[in-house]
Design a protein around this nucleic acid. Sequence first.
RNA 1: GCCCAGAUGGCGGAAUUGGUAGACGCGCCAGACUCAAAAUCUGGUAUUGGCAACAAUGUGCAGGUUCGAUUCCUGUUCUGGGCACCA
Length: 1093
Amino acid sequence: MEYNFRAIEQHWQQEWKAKEIYKVSNDASKPKYYVLDMFPYPSGAGLHVGHPLGYIASDIFARYKRLKGFNVLHPMGYDAFGLPAEQYAIDHGIHPAVSTENNINTFRKQLDNIGFCYDWSREIRTSDPSYYKWTQWIFLQLFKSWYNRDTKKAESIDGLIKIFETEGNINHPIPDQKSQTRLPDGQVRNHKSEIFSSSDWKGFDEATQQFILMEYRLAYCGYGEVNWCEALGTVLANDEVINGVSERGGYPVVKKKLRQWYLRITEYADRLQGDLNTLEWSDAMKEMQTNWIGKSSGAEIEFSLASPPSPLLPERGDAKVAESGRLFKTADANWHILKEYGRLNRKNPTAAEDVLWQNIRNNKLGVKVRRQHAIQGYIVDFALLEVKLVIEVDGEYHNEEQQKIYDEARTGYLKEFGLNLIRFSNDDVLNNTKTVIEKIKEEIQVQKKNSRTSEGLPLPEEEKGLGDEAKAGVRVYTTRPDTIFGVDFMVLAPEHELVGQITTAEQKAAVDEYVAYVKSRSERERMAEKKISGCFTGAYAINPLSGKHIPVWISEYVLAGYGTGAIMAVPCGDERDHKFAKHFNIPVTNIIGDYYNGEEANPTKEAVLQNSGFLDGMVMKDAAEVVIQWLEDNEEGVRKVNYKMRDAAFSRQRYWGEPFPIIWKDGIAYPLDEKDLPLELPHVESYKPGPEGEGPLANIEAWTARHLETNTMPGYAGSSWYFLRYMDPHNDTVFCDRKGSDYWNQVDLYIGGTEHAVGHLLYSRMWTKALYDLGHIGFNEPFKKLLNQGMIQGSSRFVYRVRGKNGFVSVGLKDQYVTDQIHVDVNIVDGVELDIEAFKNWRNGEYANAEFILEDGKYICGTEVEKMSKSKFNTVNPDELVLKYGADTFRMYEMFLGPVEQSKPWDTKGIEGVHRFLKKLWRLFYDEQKGKIWTDQQPTAEELKVLHRTIKKVEEDTERFSFNTAVSAFMIAVNELSDLQCHKKTILESILVLLTPYAPHIAEELWQRLGNSGSVLDATYPIFEEKYVIESSKSYPVAINGKTRTDITIALDATQQQVEALVLANAVVQKWLEGKSPKKIIYVKNRMINVVV
RNA sequence: GCCCAGAUGGCGGAAUUGGUAGACGCGCCAGACUCAAAAUCUGGUAUUGGCAACAAUGUGCAGGUUCGAUUCCUGUUCUGGGCACCA
């Protein structure tokens, strides 16, 4: 009776299915354990041998836990939305729903072949409306929530509205924004300053209110830059862009600003960071997330410009203000107009304002001065709030009749609040500056006296005016404020908003050219670029501490999205800055003395500062704090915590994804009523992009007529919460019943590839936290333990075509010709030797008439290890292996290849050995001639020792996911039992239970054949007993000076003296001692003995 | 460029805490069985020298710490993964 794996495996797979062996219930007295795989994207290529690696590992662990008495949830599903299906549809006209369905069926068949213990009754597909109904629902929860920084959690936006109605947003200023939230005209909104009162709020119209709320929502709409390919009419990923052109077709690609949805994940940065230490993840994985979040602390510093930018408009303000007013639907919404107005004024001060500003800024009068400050509906030129003084500088247009009335009204109004107002004309300021300053000083004194008696408007300390930020200068973020005196130049991102304004006439052409060049480069290319490039703007900035004038450059290595989009360059301390300085011959200021050798930068923090003004003599790491203090005292900068992480772009201009449950009305996004979910993806005939970079949904009239959002959600939407749906997959009234999620709780073991280290794993953590904050689930981290499987790489084979000929040259001779390297199917290559006949038939005989230049009569292929991919013809299909060797062999072989965590190239060669092992195991039970040979005899001590050593090893290895060594332990056990000719049921039965997680079919079969009923999965796991493996003596290696020379056997309880005596008596030791006595004898119990001579 | 990981015989890998480097398997060599092959079984197999005993070398490379380093430290090279619209 031989091992007929095909019949066995088929039989048990049917049996398991029929008896619903793997179905789990949500209420069980047993403790729960949740084992989850990262669900696959069902690609058209089907499963390759890389996919099952993690699935087998999780299957082993799920079965192991079940044997250990747990109620194990082990589900599977499909991440079914995605770009490839859409691309396939464009190319072949097959609807994504159809191709996806086909692919899923293929995947399922392939998965079933391997004998996984998934509870398929819980299968989910993210593209299924009954699933994405809840993806949309969660999106709406995010849309209807904001992050309360006081309570540090997500809360309902209704609560925020109540706060606005009672106290305005003074205690909850608009969260910091990154580059995404620029207005269509390219202006960066300066949100911090947008402070409003409760009465302001009540006065705002609907559009303004909604606009403000959008700045708080956890899911919000803003503007962001994308790689735009006009010819393809579509947005491209960074790696679809190569050297400024699209990978497909080679069309030019430029940056384009598009309306986008975002998730405000930045609000969770601190929690995402902090909670990492509650997780059992590898340090590497935590480190990657930490680096992605990129928390750093330092200072934001304001460098004013040596020559302020000239005004953009001859008569400042008005035109621009009117234009920006068009952003809003109501004509009389004065709030944002004011805001805009103030900002523009600040940026484009009149000459008089600027002169005055330079004379009174920086506490020069002993009083803090704010420019273009909004007070109760007015913008004043300068506000000295602590002394309740307002200064106005009047230009020509204030003489107009209308303006006069307006000004008088303002004076009166401000007086009501206890604010005194003084006016100067432009002429006075410009020509009699001194007098004007004296006058202001006098007024300050008067106000100071009055302030003790006068009442009036209490101005909140924290209130910030419009003038606080964007003075006419460049803000930089630095983690090294201590190096401030070493700043030799500044670098702005080429897309920085100031570039256009500060560039001098002489430099304009060069700057424009450089900006255009950068526009065509993807962020990735820019970061990876080794060549140093940049362009001088002609402008100079003033170092606020040293007063030194420093040149302002632009360069692609500074990205707009990080920090402020501008850096202060300290070449002696930063390698990149140093290279830049050397390349452009910018003199380097050395502030670190001997630490800088003139050749390369030294990022030390230990140096004692030199050339650093009042910091001289201070150690750098102490100086940072001093500088921050100085900056804050002098209002030239602020302490700042910065995150590298940006808000997550959450919309795609694509078809095959979840539609947003959003309706646009007069430019305002309104949520769809939850009872109208799911908002189903409409069927389309064409998948072509919509106009102006919109998604294909924009082409559907019925869709646009309802004013529905035309973007769809990205691939990671559905995968951000799927682990919750498995807990309660068929619920139609809630995304996951709270009882279910309370029972199953966190995923105990999550297995998947490291490629998801920062994407999926961060997003799902954020969603979990948001759902937790809002009270929908009871835990705030999704994946307790994470196991990262390595990538199974393909070993690609290449042939070399002689250019211009239908001829191929063997790899060893290819250098003698001009050749093109072509991937060839690994399945028609034996090792490295090409099967020429098979090659001629390959690809429908494309190379039927090819000629071959051979070496030693063979055509040898080139090889390379790379990602397994259909397009590289290096995939190996598991089906064929399962057919040939069986699922159990395949499972064990994949595990035997090496540690699960490690990446390795696939090689089918060794699979025979594992198959032989299973056959050998079978022969412990059955003989080909004699049939059944297992007996009921009592085991010997030797046999029990083998068994218990195996129990210990397999259990320990399984617990630490060292599946390859567990397989090896099985092999050792079977080898030893074969040598002992052990066919005893008691021993073999225990081995079968141990083996069940690894080779479930053969274990189940033999378990039944031994006369057991019920599944082997319900057997009890063997218990290791020390008494069977105890030995009384042990063989120790004896090393002389650390080099093993011999070994001796000593009793385990031997003392140091006994051991030394034995060692010295040993002939080999004597030989090496050469008559001398040893310096020392090191005896480590259970390990080794070392004799030091 | 930045972040993370890895590198051990002809090959995949083992060595769990600093303690016998190469478990287990593949491949290869020799032998048994067979007319022959397959299957199976037995023995050998890091490199160099030697009939052997044995000796020297050996965990990407260069150093260091230690009685002792694949393991810890410093530097370096190469390979793989990620870098925000592939999933």
